[in-house]
Structure formats: C-alpha cells, structure tokens
Design a protein around this nucleic acid. Sequence first.
DNA 1: CGGGATCCATAGTGATACTG
DNA 2: CAGTATCACTATGGATCCCG
Lengths: 136, 136
Amino acid sequence: MDSKIFNLKAKLEVYKAMTNGGNFADCPVRDVIQGISGKWSSLLVMALAEKPYRFGELRRLVPDISQRMLTQTLYDLQRDGYVHREVFPTKPPSVEYSLTDLGRSMFAPLQMLVQWAELNHDAVRAARAAFDAAQA
Amino acid sequence: MDSKIFNLKAKLEVYKAMTNGGNFADCPVRDVIQGISGKWSSLLVMALAEKPYRFGELRRLVPDISQRMLTQTLYDLQRDGYVHREVFPTKPPSVEYSLTDLGRSMFAPLQMLVQWAELNHDAVRAARAAFDAAQA
DNA sequence: CGGGATCCATAGTGATACTG
DNA sequence: CAGTATCACTATGGATCCCG
C-alpha cells in the first residue's frame, strides 16, 4: 500500500473529525478535548491513574494547585465521567477520588502526548529562543 | 513480564514527566503542552498537516475563527517552531504557512487523542447529562 | 491580501477568609 | 477534612476599523 496515500487519508480523517464535517459550532471531538485541556485536568488524571487519592493528598501531591482549582477541576472531571467521588461518612469526613473506566481509557493517548512533549521540548524552546532573538 | 507492574511503572513515569520531578514551576512537558492546548492550535496543525495553506485559505477553511485569533495562533505556532511562514512578494502579497518537521511530528500523538475523543464523546456526553440530572 | 490596533466580553486562575 | 464564598487579576477570544 502506498504510504503517502495512506497518510493523506489519515490526515483528512483526523481533520474531518476535528471539524465535524463542517459543523464547527457543535464538534464532539473539540468538545471532549476542551474538557480535558484545562491547566490541571490532565495532571490530575495522570496522578489518579497511579492510585486513588483523597482531597488533601492530592493537594500535597500537587503543591502549586490552589484549593479552588483542585475542587473545580475534580468537579469537572467527575461531571464528564472521568473521576469517581466517594464520600466516607467518618468524622471528620474523608473523600476519595478515583478514575472511572472512562478516565483510565484516557491514559494511553495522554501518555503519547506527554512522551512527544518530553522528546521535543528542547526543540520547542530552541525555536522560541531563536524566534525571539530574530525579532529583536 | 507482569503487566501490572509494567503499567504502574509507566504511570509513574508519565506523572513524573508531567511534574518535572517536583519542580512544578518550570516543567517542560507542561510548557510544551500549554503551547498547543489553545482553542485553535491543534486544529490549524491538523489542517496544515494535509498541505500548506495561505492566510485567506485558512480563513475560509475554518470559518468560525476570527482574523485576530488566526493571526495570533499562527504567530504562536511559528514561534514554537511548528509552522513555517513564507512571504511571496507578489502584489498583493501572499503568505504561505506550512508545517515544519517538528510540526509534523505532532501529528501522531494528536491523532491518538482525536481518535480517543471520537470514540468516547458519547460516554462523556451521557455522563454529563446524568450528572446534571442528578444535581437538579 | 494579509494583517495591525483597539476595545470589549468572558473564562480561567489565584489569594484569602470562612464553614459543616 | 474537605470544601464554599468572595474578590481581584490575567488570559483568552471576538468585533470592528484601519492600513500598506
């Protein structure tokens, strides 16, 4: 099979998916990706991929997230079905967050992206520096 | 090999990469991912993956992007080394945008994410609807 | 044609203080 | 412990007008 034709076909498929065949206003792919493209969403999913955590544990695990953003991001992840929230009626109460099957299914594609980022961040930073130098 | 141990190791690796081993303030992975997580960045990369386009062509191709965001997103993508910008001194001038090798390298991981989103958007929307119904 | 400049609305993010 | 509430600030995105 001609790999060039195959590649172009794949590219068109992906672009078509991202544009919902012209219906930009209501594109499912963009809708889903929007939901996980927040500053903390992917990070928390990756943390919970290891094992379930309680609220305070997550706070200590990710020291630079504010309480507000942790609450809000977990809420959004729960709403979209990625995270399960279980309240244990102890005193004081404890709440455990874990990934659902849907949340776990996100791991593989996210891992690809992270590995790509890890592999290319030097090139990106070099390009950025060269670009800024050329502008000055 | 025990796949469970392997999976946990992979998860820890990815999380470690996303947290820069504790140095959250300057994490390369998050820096790179931030750069492509804009509303239009990935869409334009996927469009240019097919073939180079001129400014006006891109505008018509993605009708719901504003002129400002098209200009700015292309500028950012160029700055990070994903997009090459070539000016043809015709009259009136024409400007062609194309992917660099770095930009092309983004296609595969992005494709994974898009396919995952396509496969799971029904589940996400169902979860969202159920969650909202439960809240009401 | 391919932008730049300006103004404005909204969403995202954070600091702080308070609560069941 | 696990949040809520409030406020302030910044980033993102869009509309409009202008220009070489």
